[in-house]
């Protein structure tokens, strides 16, 4: 049987005052490898200052619909014990390339209890989806300035990945409609 390695959800922070956001996932073998891989995949372009990875199976998720229907129980793979849980939330249907945003931590005995606490704590906006993650399952990139420089800064110099790099001269379509000549706005 082939293996594509386990799946890890990736959370990327664009700048120090922004929350970590779920950007997608990577397949990787172990936590250190998952972080390196996350950097390779999701820092090909700016911006980033920090990344977290979590095994997909260690994430407890609820959509608004599930919460409304009272479907509180989730899988039993996690050994319940009192501890910290990271809370992520989605609040908008707007077009976006990220899913849930990090909003904070709660202390609880189970993911379900963590969800209830999160619902009571983070009330500033309607939650369309929640992710609850046991804090000890989160692996974080090194916050030292050297690592930030080495992992995330070079992408800014890779300007050839930006469309502005290409000074394409072309004509606007309307130029080809009879009679009018309109300059390209590019």
């Amino acid at each position: 049987m082939d293996t594509q390695w386990p799946r890890w959800e990736v959370f990327k922070q664009d700048s120090p005052n922004k929350p970590h956001q779920a950007v997608g996932s990577v397949h990787a073998a172990d936590p250190e490898h998952a972080l390196l891989t996350a950097r390779n995949i999701f820092a090909r372009r700016p911006q980033a200052v920090s990344m977290w990875v979590v095994r997909a199976e260690d994430i407890y998720s609820w959509t608004q619909e599930e919460v409304a229907e009272g479907q509180m129980t989730k899988g039993e793979s996690y050994q319940a014990q009192v501890g910290q849980y990271l809370v992520f939330r989605k609040t908008s249907h707007k077009r976006s390339m990220t899913f849930v945003d990090y909003v904070g931590e709660v202390e609880a005995a189970t993911p379900e209890e963590a969800l209830k606490k999160a619902q009571a704590t983070f009330t500033d906006a309607l939650a369309l989806a929640w992710w609850i993650v046991p804090a000890d399952r989160v692996y974080k990139s090194d916050p030292s300035p050297e690592t930030i420089q080495s992992w995330f800064a070079p992408a800014k110099d890779k300007t050839y990945k930006q469309q502005q790099y290409y000074a394409t001269v072309g004509s606007h379509i309307s130029k080809h409609k009879v009679g009018r000549g309109v300059e390209d706005e590019e």
Partner: peptide, 18 residues
């Protein structure tokens, strides 16, 4: 050998060309 590593090595290649 896997998509993720294809991407990783392509990063190294671009850096080296740079």
């Amino acid at each position: 050998p896997i998509l993720e590593e294809d991407i990783a090595l392509a990063n190294i290649v671009q850096d080296e060309l740079g």
